[in-house]
Each structure stands twice: as structure tokens, then as C-alpha cells.
Write a protein that binds this DNA or RNA. Structure first.
Length: 397
DNA sequence: CATCCACAGGAAGGACGGGGGT
DNA sequence: ACCCCCGTCCTTCCTGTGGATG
């Protein structure tokens, strides 16, 4: 029976002797490299729009589309970084990821914090925050570029009111001071916007096509050269990562994650070379972590609904909303819990679909009504592991 | 060809806990 | 101390719907 410190020593010695990574941070998803291959056209266009700031003038608003992992965020940060190095006094920029800050309140709070204003977590109204932002903006002398990454998520939940008000800030101030860069991975998104917002935000538009397998391979090679020790990864490993990610709509982030995690697996085992088997294991590990994170933070009744779906999926075929509800009701009652309504369960099923844990497709079965076909989208074992602790807690009741 | 199933999913709102302003 | 605002879950009530069936 070995103690914890022994285990740590053992892992450490393996990691020390392993020569896999030269500089691991280069392979992290938010690392912005100093060259972005296959995005030259987008870089040039974005730079030519934003370069206005050199005279202290406000650039046009920009709208950027492209699926996840197509380099939208990297290109935007890259261009802004470089521009800021060149013209440090004429403008500032604030980057807000709307997935993390997905309410108008949080977005405004993030912007204010970017301007150096401390704001309470909650408690005051959004209108009050907006007032504070306006008074802050009145005092600044530079151009402010606000990057709203993944705005589709926020707008879908809370409407485009905030966007509308942000686009009007300039006329309210009486002098043009802020530009907005909107980033979305939903191409149809812009059509759902208020026409006024739409025309204002999409002064300029940029499209980021997915990377193909060759481009992904090239990107991975470049990163691997500075991130990995020479000889640690071979052609086969890179190609597999590229192929897997290309299948997944050309997502470079995913390709890099696969490569990095595969490297970590090899490192943990004290090897000096990453194999294709490591990539395969990395794929499973990434999926497991994602599911685990999502499932453990689910509210109680969402977990119960998921358990009901697992129960009903034993035979492998799909369930209807009604069937899920029936199973859920039995489960909740057997635990002595209040049951929630079918309306709510219907929403929960959609939420679980959205995060990719199950698929809930709406189907019309004519005489037999309109319903959802619910199926698990991840292996049962993964879910069972993630729900394990919850089940134990519930058993305790 | 109308009907009618089994829900979908919008709208409005309420309880509640965390966190303000004054 | 008291009132206000927020997001999160949830309810109630509701109108809408594609296509197999009679």
C-alpha cells in the first residue's frame, strides 16, 4: 500500500524522464501563435478594416462568421494584439467571451472591468451598469474596440437588446468612440437580428471557412515543432489528429486538443514517443471529461431525467417525451421527490440535446402525434460513471 | 380530405437565494 | 435595516402542427 506522496513521486519521476513536451503551453487552445497559416486572407482583411485606428478614428463594425475552431478568435486577437503594439495610445480593446458571460449584465460588467471599473457581481440593474459604462466612455480619449465572441449564444437567450444599445452608443456620445467586432459560429444567426442592429453590425463581414485535413496537418506540424521535443510525434500521429478533426467540421482546436492530450498520456507513462493509440485514448478521455463536467453540474431533476433516459435506452431504441416522462415520474416518486411538469422535462431534454449528451429530434408520426425521439449520444458507461456519485447520494435518502 | 394524436414550444410569471444600493 | 435587481428553475396556460388514419 503506497502513500500519496509516493504516488506523486512516481508520477513525477516518469514525467521528468519523459521527453515529450518542449513547451506545452504552445499546444493549449487559447495560445495565440505568431503566425496563423491558411488565414492570411482573413488577417489582411481584418487588419485593413481596423487599421483606421492609427489616426484615432473609429473603424467599422465587423461581423465574423465561421464554425468552431476555424481561427476566428485567434485571428481577431492576433490582429488586435499586433495593432495595439503599433499604436498603443490610440485605441484599446476588450475581449468578451459571451459563452462565459452569457447575460447582458455580465457582458457589461466585463466591459467595465476591462476599462478598469470594479462592478459588483450582481445586485444592481443592467440599466445602472449601462449608465456607468456611458459615463466611463465619456471620459476616455481613445477608440475602444469591443470584441463579443460567440454572441449568438447570448442573443438566443436574451435577445438583441444589448447589441442594439451598444450600436447606438456612438450617436448618444456625440462622437464615435467604440467599434464592435461580433463573432459567431452560427451562420444563420445574423438573419435573426433586428434589421437596425444587423445593418449596423455588419458594416463589414468576414467568413472563416473550415480547415481541410491538409491545412490541419500543416497547422499541427508547425505547433508540434515548437511544442514537442523533436521526434516525439510522427507523421502518423499528426495525420490521425488532423483526420479526426477534419471529420469534425475542420476544427483546429479539437485537433490541437487531441494532439496535446495524446502527448500527456505518453508523458504520464514515461514514454518518449506519442503513438496513434495515444490519440485514440485522448479522444475518449476528452469526451469523458466533457461529459463528466456537464453531468456532475446538472441540477437534480435534469439528472433524474437523464437517468430515466438511460433506463429506457436499455433496449437501444429511442424513446418519446411521454415515455421519458413516465420513467422519470416513477423514479422521482420512488425517491419521495416532487415531480416536475412534462413541459419542463421537454425543455430539459432540449438542454441535454444542446450539450450533446443525448439527441432529441422532433418527429411527426402522423396519427400518432408529434414528439421527440430521444436517444443517448454518448456511451452509457461514461454516463453511469459520471452519475455514480449522484446515485449514491440519492440512495442515502 | 378532414381529423386528431402527442406532443412542441411560446408567453407570462412566481418562488427563491445571492447580492447589491442607500 | 430595508428595498431592489438579478439569474435559475419551475409552473400554468396556451396555440400550433405533419401526416397516418378513418
Amino acid at each position: 500500500m503506497s502513500g500519496l506522496s509516493e504516488i506523486i513521486d512516481e508520477v513525477l519521476s516518469l514525467v521528468k524522464t519523459s521527453r515529450i513536451f518542449k513547451d506545452r503551453k504552445i499546444l493549449l487552445p487559447d495560445y495565440v501563435p505568431d503566425e496563423l497559416p491558411h488565414r492570411e486572407e482573413q488577417i489582411r482583411k481584418l487588419a485593413s478594416i481596423l487599421v483606421q485606428v492609427y489616426r484615432g478614428e473609429k473603424p467599422s463594425n465587423v461581423f465574423i462568421y465561421g464554425l468552431t475552431g476555424t481561427g476566428k478568435t485567434a485571428v481577431t486577437k492576433f490582429v488586435l494584439n499586433n495593432l495595439h503594439k503599433r499604436f498603443p495610445d490610440t485605441f484599446r480593446y476588450i475581449y468578451v467571451n459571451t459563452r462565459n458571460s452569457d447575460t447582458p449584465y455580465r457582458i457589461l460588467a466585463d466591459i467595465l472591468e476591462g476599462l478598469g471599473v470594479r462592478v459588483p457581481f450582481t445586485g444592481i440593474s443592467t440599466a445602472e451598469l449601462f449608465k456607468r459604462l456611458m459615463s466611463q466612455l465619456r471620459s476616455i480619449k481613445y477608440v475602444l474596440i469591443i470584441v463579443l465572441d460567440e454572441i449568438d449564444a447570448m442573443v438566443k437567450k436574451h435577445g438583441d437588446d444589448l447589441l442594439y444599445r451598444l450600436t447606438r452608443v456612438n450617436s448618444e456620445l456625440g462622437s464615435p468612440k467604440i467599434s464592435i467586432i461580433g463573432i459567431t459560429n452560427d451562420v444563420k444567426f445574423i438573419d435573426t437580428l433586428d434589421p437596425r442592429v444587423k445593418s449596423s453590425l455588419s458594416d463589414e463581414e468576414l467568413v472563416f471557412p473550415p480547415y481541410n485535413a491538409d491545412e490541419l496537418r500543416d497547422i499541427l506540424w508547425r505547433r508540434a515543432k515548437s511544442g514537442f521535443v523533436e521526434g516525439a510525434v510522427g507523421e502518423d500521429v499528426i495525420s490521425l489528429c488532423a483526420a479526426l478533426a477534419a471529420r469534425d467540421h475542420g476544427d483546429a482546436r479539437r485537433a490541437l486538443d487531441l494532439l496535446r492530450v495524446a502527448g500527456e498520456i505518453a508523458e504520464r507513462e514515461g514514454r518518449n514517443v506519442v503513438t496513434t493509440a495515444d490519440v485514440e485514448r485522448a479522444r475518449l478521455e476528452i469526451e469523458r471529461d466533457r461529459v463528466f463536467e456537464i453531468v456532475t453540474t446538472l441540477p437534480l431533476h435534469s439528472k433524474l431525467v437523464l437517468l430515466a433516459v438511460i433506463q429506457g435506452s436499455k433496449s437501444g431504441k429511442s424513446l418519446t417525451t411521454g415515455e421519458v416522462y413516465e420513467l422519470y415520474t416513477k423514479l422521482a416518486k420512488s425517491l419521495g421527490l416532487e415531480v416536475i411538469t412534462q413541459r419542463r422535462v421537454s425543455d430539459i431534454l432540449n438542454e441535454l440535446d444542446m450539450v450533446g449528451i443525448l439527441s432529441a429530434k422532433v418527429v411527426n408520426r402522423g396519427r400518432y402525434g408529434k414528439t421527440k425521439e430521444v436517444k443517448l449520444a454518448v456511451p452509457v458507461e461514461t454516463l453511469v460513471k459520471a452519475l455514480d456519485s449522484t446515485v449514491k447520494e440519492l440512495d442515502g435518502i
